[in-house]
Each structure stands twice: as C-alpha cells, then as structure tokens.
Design a protein around this nucleic acid. Structure first.
Lengths: 158, 158
DNA sequence: ATATAATTGAGAATGATTATCAATTGCATT
DNA sequence: AATGCAATTGATAATCATTCTCAATTATAT
C-alpha cells in the first residue's frame, strides 16, 4: 500500500469515513493524473478506469482529498477551479499566460522566508498560500510584439 | 472631473464605447465602495444612489472597469469573486482568515523584487500577480488554541 | 451475521453569470 | 437642432458548475 493510500485511509478512519470502492477509484485517478486538473478530468479518468463513479461523488470526494492533504485548489482561471496534487510535492508557485493559458511552475525559496516573516509580524498563522503571476509567456509575447510592429494593436495601445 | 472619471472616459472613447448614465452611476458606486466588494455590493450601491441600473448591466460593466484599470479581481473565496479598486492604490497582497473570513492587506517590497527576477529568468512578461496567504488571524487562532486545550479538537487532531 | 451510520447514484435544485432581443440612447455627422 | 446608426439597456430566459435530496446500498464495528 502506497504512502498516498495510507494517508488517505488514515484520514478517513480518523473521521469516521468509509474507504469505499468509489473513493479507492478516485484516489487511483488522482495518482494517475498529472500536474493540474479539473473536476471533469477526474471524472474522465475514473471512467477510463472502467469504474462508474458518479459526478456527484467526484464532487463529494474533493473536499476529503483536500482535507487529507493529497490535493489542493490551486488557481482559479475564470470559472473553473484547478486542482493539483500536493502530497510530497515540493512547494512551488505558478505563472499563467494570459494569451495561451499555459501554466508554468516555479519555486523560489527566498519568497517563503519573506512570507513567514510577514505572517509573524501580523500574528497570522499561515496554513497555505497561493502566488500566481499572470502575464505573457515567451512565445506569446514574441507574437504580440510582432503584431504591435505591424501596427495591429495601435488602437488598443492608443 | 476626477482622474478616476477621466481615465474611465478615455478608455471608453478609445474603444468606441459610450459614457452612459448607467456607467456613470457604476463608476460613482465603485468610488464610494471601500476595500473589497462583490458584484452584489456594487448592485446595492447603485440602488442606494436611487438609480436603477440592472444587475445585467452591472455584470456587463465589470470587464470594462477591469480593462480600464480601475478595479481588479482579487481573491476567489469559494464561489464569489472579490473585486477591489486599484487605480492609484499602492500595491499590496492579502491574508485571509480561514475561520472568520476577514481579509487583511499587507505589502512587502522585497517580494516584488523577487517576483521580477523570477519573471526575467523565465522570460515571462508579468502583467499582474496575486498572492494570498491563507491561515488564521490572531483572534481566531487564540480561540482555536483554547478549544484544543479544552479537548474539543482532539478527534480532528487525532 | 447483524445493526447502524455513512455512502452512493440519479436527477432535481440552486445560484452566479451570460445570452437574447426588442426598445432606447449616446454621439458623430449633417 | 435633427438624423442615423451602432452601442446599450432591462427583463428575462438560458447556461453550467456545483450542491442537495432521498431511497437504495454498503462498509465496518460488534
């Protein structure tokens, strides 16, 4: 039994929750899914596993996966919420390209120290953080610059 | 005419949009609203101004206010989106109490430098950022600690 | 094996946001 | 000031992710 599964089962037991087949399938699904995923991705993944967990159960299980420390809610791109695995993952933050939507991860140890200091100054007990840099990735920015040079963005840029 | 209004009108003119009464009322509303507000708060504020701007128009106007640089989408607490004014406001970030929901602002110049460096390293052109620290404020943490001492949180804490 | 409380699936309900469309209005042009 | 046209609006219907309901099922302690 993986540590992942171990942690999930412990959490369930400590909270009088049952380790059902559906929850087993959902756990498997998120171990298979990579990087960033949506609710719908989880649902599609369990269907690939030939198990028919209902969408309602997917929604019901997400808070459990979060509270057991396996996944976290990461970015909110417009309407849909993005989740990602956090169990044993090194801490990192995100850059989101406003043009192509690509999500890039980065880590910055210096930032952590600053955040801890700030929390201490405000007597705030941190549990989690979200840092999101929004802008343009290398490729998209290159394209945009070209368009500007061709005079296409003149109106917007005044 | 305030700079705020000036900027809004310029944006409208540059984009072939009209400066209607409804937009005037909405602009007034956000200048009156403080700190962080929801769509519903804007709607309530225009009603206080005795003008009947429809909810549909409030929703329609928000993207314009964002693109003209007057407000920004700040935090996503669960479902509802939180907006705040950014025009001429100094840069700051947020701490959110997971217990009482209180939002506190803080600023940290050191963090900005780090973020700029990271963007440069990744050839990423930043447009905006969001940093959210989630945890417990002084008061709530004090209460939680008391409960723990009284043995109430034992089950959750194992 | 039994009892019991938790869980599930199917579909209805919710609630924030968006789309529709006929009527209205700002504004550039005469 | 009057005209014409495209943008805007309000009312309401539509959408769509998420949550709720409830009868039937299932995991787990005893």
């Amino acid at each position: 039994m993986s540590l992942y599964e171990e942690q999930f089962k412990n959490y369930l037991k400590n909270n009088d929750l049952k380790y059902t087949n559906e929850r087993k399938e959902l756990l498997k699904a998120i171990t298979i899914l990579k990087d960033h995923f949506h609710v719908e991705d989880i649902y599609q993944q369990v269907r690939k596993q030939k198990s028919d967990v209902s969408l309602a159960t997917v929604y019901r299980t997400i808070p459990i996966l979060i509270e057991s420390g396996l996944i976290t809610e990461t970015l909110s791109e417009g309407d849909k919420i993005v989740y990602e695995k956090i169990y044993n993952e090194p801490r990192h933050d995100h850059m989101v390209c406003l043009n192509c939507g690509k999500i890039m991860e980065f880590s910055c140890p210096g930032m952590e120290k600053l955040q801890k200091n700030i929390c201490r100054e405000h007597s705030f007990i941190p549990v989690e953080h979200r840092l999101e840099l929004r802008g343009y990735c290398r490729n998209c920015w290159k394209n945009i610059k070209q368009k500007i040079n061709n005079g296409k963005y003149n109106q917007e840029l005044k």
